Computed example of a mutant assay.
Amino acid sequence: MYITSKSTMKKIIISSINHNLNNAIALLRLIKTPIYQDDSVGPYYSSIGSHIRHILDFFECIVNGLDSNNIDLTVRKRDGLLSRDKEFAIEYICKLQETLFSYVDVNTNYLIHVTDNMGKGKVTVNYTLESIMSHANSHAMHHYAIIGYILHNLDIEIKIPGFGYNPTTPINKREGA
């Protein structure tokens, strides 16, 4: 299916992001704070909260850089409260969803400068708003998979349909078959 209308494409992207952010909210409502903060799973010893914070940092860079047309993914706040306080994270996600929804009618017929460190220093490339938001959504799904790994290693089973899987993953693989 090819989408020709930029407005339709943006609505689909924002709707997909909000769906994935709703999955994060569902997860946070299902787990207790000690699980959210648990950093005992190797090999990286990161908590679910640190992954949620990292996902939100990525989106925050987009939001903060749009007005100046300079999104710098290396300038993240790393707000520790997001890693420790799941209720604060839920509130933050809800505000982010409102902000993203407000972009549906924003003119995006221009290129946005996006800076990141690719491992050999900072590089700035051009994106559209739709492409950087799609990138952020894929980035979130990647971290949801890591969160799924953490939950598995903590022997905690949480059922949120599609959580941690790319939508292109065959359904039988998502179900562990």
Rank of each mutant, 00 (worst) to 15 (best):
T4G: 13
N18V: 01
G42P: 09
S131F: 01
I112T: 15
G65A: 07
K6E: 13
S68N: 12
Q97N: 15
I156G: 02
I35G: 00
I62Y: 06
I62Q: 03
T4D: 11
N117R: 07
I31C: 06
L30Q: 15
F101A: 13
S138H: 10
V41T: 07
K11I: 04
I48N: 07
Y165W: 14
L82A: 06
Y103W: 14
N70Y: 10
M1A: 13
A136E: 03
I25T: 00
M141D: 04
I35F: 06
S5Q: 09
F101I: 05
K10M: 10
Y2P: 02
S15D: 14
H135C: 01
L100N: 04
I13A: 03
K6I: 07
V104G: 04
T124V: 11
K159A: 11
Y165A: 10
N70F: 12
L151R: 00
M141Q: 12
K77A: 12
G121L: 10
N117K: 06
R78I: 07
D38A: 11
I132P: 03
T128Y: 07
Y110K: 15
L27H: 03
Y165E: 04
D72L: 06
A136L: 00
N18F: 04
S15H: 10
D39R: 11
L151K: 00
Y44S: 13
M141K: 06
Y103R: 03
V125Q: 14
S46K: 10
N109F: 11
S40M: 07
S102P: 12
N172D: 09
I158Q: 00
P167R: 00
D85Q: 10
K122E: 14
P34Y: 02
S7V: 11
D57Q: 05
I93D: 05
D155S: 12
K10F: 03
Y36H: 13
T99F: 13
G176S: 08
L30G: 02
E157T: 14
H135T: 03
G176P: 11
M133V: 04
T108C: 11
L111W: 11
E87K: 12
S16G: 15
E60G: 01
D39Q: 09
D105W: 00
N23I: 02
C61Y: 00
Y36L: 09
A24R: 05
M133T: 03
V104D: 14
V114A: 07
I158W: 01
I90H: 12
L111N: 12
G176K: 15
L100S: 02
S102M: 08
N18E: 01
H142T: 00
K6L: 13
K95I: 09
K159I: 13
V125P: 02
N22I: 06
I3A: 04
C94L: 15
I55Y: 02
P167W: 01
